[in-house]
Amino acid sequence: MTEMPKYTKKDFVSDQEVRWCPGCGDYAILNAVQMAMAKINRKKEDIAFISGIGCSSRFPYYMSTYGLHTIHGRAPAFASGLKVHNPDLSVWLITGDGDGLSIGGNHLIHLIRRNVNMNVILFNNEIYGLTKGQYSPTTPPGQVTKSTPYGSLDRCFLPGKLMLGAGSTFFARTMDTDPKHMQEIFLAAEQHQGCSFIEVLQNCVIFNDKTHENYTNRKLRDDWVFFLEAGKPIIFGKEKNKGLRLNGAKLEVVTIGENGVTENDLVVHDPKDSNLAFLLNNLVPHRDPLAMGIVHQVEDLTYDAQVTQQISDVSDKKGKMSMQDVLKSGSTWTVK
């Protein structure tokens, strides 16, 4: 067993020229991931980055770890096969809203359902970038894009809600303009035993610039996002006087000090509470304030650990035999 090397960000930078558009949010995510990798306490050779197709999916080329750039939408399957074959690896899946939620939607929900122990980073820019500007499953209805000149008629997915429905054990949200928060979330995801799903609000500077502006611009975001902390009331706003309160089975935004509202009336965040997770994941982008941080985290068995366990249990029970023994098992007869 060799000792854990001391890594810096540089150890995770590959020799390949990064080719995203100038100003793309992907640069900040790449940077934050490389910083986080130096801190997750895993050897570089034990880390693999797997992606599908799209702008975000060029990601593995820029990491100096093991990696696969695969085909459109199927990264969850490649990553599952790799992780199940070798559960000792730290597997990171990079996808976008088109790759992960449209063409790869089926694979993604089944990855979550099985709870394979890996980390998924969904770059959500609400648009198709690499194919040059068509609407995606997260594009808000009505938006004009290359393929919706009169406005999109598609209803959109709320990624957190979809993941909760698929049985997710870890869902968090962060944003490309907050490197520190991104790193915290990536570290928490790696520590979680199960499939950790992270939605990053990411800006496409060319085809959907500033779509997340209210949530990601430091000057505007205070009234639009609330940072979750387990055991703490949900408070936000420039004046730190806004909060979320339960009204019946619904969340509502209230102001502390108005109508007799005090901090004690506010919802206290509990990542283990699936009902609260549903309410938080049901907040609608562009209309409601959104949660940042770990929305939902519960413990459950992971698929890969169970595969390993079952193999060990059955092997113990059946005992070691050779293939020659198998060939001779059951009914055989001798011809003289």
Binding site: K83, H85, H107
Partner: peptide, 12 residues
């Protein structure tokens, strides 16, 4: 997904 998991495992 059947073939893709296999390719992922082969990479491994």
């Amino acid at each position: 997904a059947g073939v893709c998991t296999a390719i992922g495992a082969s990479f491994g």
